[in-house]
Amino acid sequence: MKLLRDLLDKQVVDREQVKVGKVDGLVAQLRPGKPPRIIAIELGSITLARRLGARPGRWMARLAVKLGGTQHGEPHRIAWRKVKDIGIDIEFDIDVRETSIFAWQDWLRDHIIGRIPGA
């Protein structure tokens, strides 16, 4: 399979077909004498900012810590062994509600959107 063409930037859905994000990054483990092994995908603004350069990456990480606390200073990762199906979308055997990927959306809902009548 071609990683950049068929995996990177593709839509990620969870087992309920909820759209989780795009495959913003691919993490490989380097092993002596053995080919690099894909261990996880990354998603989120920090990974995206890093793709633009080291400096935007640092800024975004600092911003994320400022807004969300230290637990948000690193990109979100989903382990590769959770992958279920690779098509035009990439399905993972997870439930996004059990991860912190949507923490900011939850915050938005609880503090702003949910407080507007009719939401």
Binding site: M1, K2, L3, L4, R5, A28, K34, P35, P36, R37, I38, W80, R81
Partner: peptide
């Protein structure tokens, strides 16, 4: 570098 190829290797998925 324009593309990275990977293949299944047992339970693993490795860059070839």
């Amino acid at each position: 570098i324009e593309e990275i190829r990977a293949e299944r290797d047992g339970d693993d998925f490795v860059v070839t």
